[in-house]
Simulated assay, not measured.
Amino acid sequence: MVSTQAIRVGVIEDHPLYRAAVARVLEEAEDIELGAVADSVARFAVCRQPAGSVVVLDLKLRGIADAAAVMEIVGMGHKVLVVSAHAGQSEVLGAISAGARGYLSKDADGEEILRAIREIASGNSYVSPTLASFVLNSTRDRNAGPKLVLSERERQVLSLVAAGERDQDIAEAMSISVRTVRSYLDRIRDKTGRRRRPELTRLAIEEGIAHPS
């Protein structure tokens, strides 16, 4: 029988073997109640997991992915623990800026995953020691750096990038050509030095122009 104090945990992971392994670790923990287990954010949403759960989330998923996936799950009222094979600085900072409460690489063993879940369920954050320096360095850089100035149209493009939209989708939403969208993106990259889409998503979150859908 599941204790009333059990931590309800969901899993979103598209690799079948890893998904099964994480689910098994959770099922075997006495203080964990395993909730919805899905291979995408869309399928997780269909399960209607009650708000307030901790969700173990991979980043590289079909459909909604990366920081946009974190924002979507946070928007459902859950606490997110990212567990990803992609643990570079842009991925870690993008996920944390999007609202993730913790971040582990897939090198983490079952005990560390459980430890992170318990910390997050208690209202704390948990980032593996090997990744924590990214967060600390980013805080220092943000406090020291000048305020970024983007035009209104550049901010609009950036917000749509953060929402996971493709160049074609952005062009249709703004009634402009794909070429113009890419011109705006080039200007944003030149102003900010952020090249990849996860980095641009993180920038949108930092600038306060990205919101959970």
Rank of each mutant, 00 (worst) to 15 (best):
A67C: 06
E165S: 05
G35P: 09
R189K: 13
A87Y: 03
R101Q: 11
V80S: 11
N137V: 06
A132W: 05
A132D: 08
A23Y: 03
S175C: 11
L61D: 01
V11L: 07
I209L: 12
I12T: 05
V149A: 11
R142H: 12
L61T: 01
D14G: 07
L81A: 10
D31A: 00
P50Y: 11
L160K: 07
V56H: 03
G99Q: 07
L59Q: 00
D31C: 04
A144E: 14
P198E: 03
L17I: 15
A69D: 01
I32E: 04
R19P: 02
N124P: 02
M174Y: 06
G102E: 07
T201K: 04
T201P: 01
I176P: 05
R195I: 14
F44V: 06
D169L: 05
E165V: 01
V54I: 08
R155T: 05
H86F: 13
A68C: 05
P50T: 10
A171R: 08
R115T: 09
D141S: 15
R196Q: 15
V54T: 05
H78S: 02
L160F: 13
A20Y: 11
I209R: 07
F134I: 03
V161A: 00
L59R: 00
D66M: 04
E30S: 03
E165H: 08
T192R: 11
G63L: 07
R182G: 09
D141E: 12
E172N: 15
G208N: 11
I64T: 15
L148G: 05
E111G: 13
R48M: 13
V70Y: 03
S105T: 01
A36M: 06
E207A: 13
I96M: 12
I120Y: 08
Y126K: 09
R19W: 04
G208Q: 13
V46W: 02
R115H: 08
D39S: 14
E27R: 14
E207M: 10
V127C: 02
G88C: 03
A6L: 02
A116K: 15
A173L: 12
S175P: 09
N137Q: 10
A204K: 05
E33M: 06
D14W: 06
R153H: 13
C47W: 00
M1A: 13
E199C: 00
E199Q: 10
E207S: 14
I120E: 09
I12E: 03
I12R: 02
I209N: 09
A162N: 03
N143I: 10
S175K: 11
A69V: 02
R48I: 01
A51L: 02
A98K: 08
Y184V: 10
A100V: 07
S213D: 13
Q156R: 08
Y184C: 07
V54P: 03
L59Y: 02
R202V: 02
A21P: 01
V54L: 07
L26M: 10
E119Y: 14
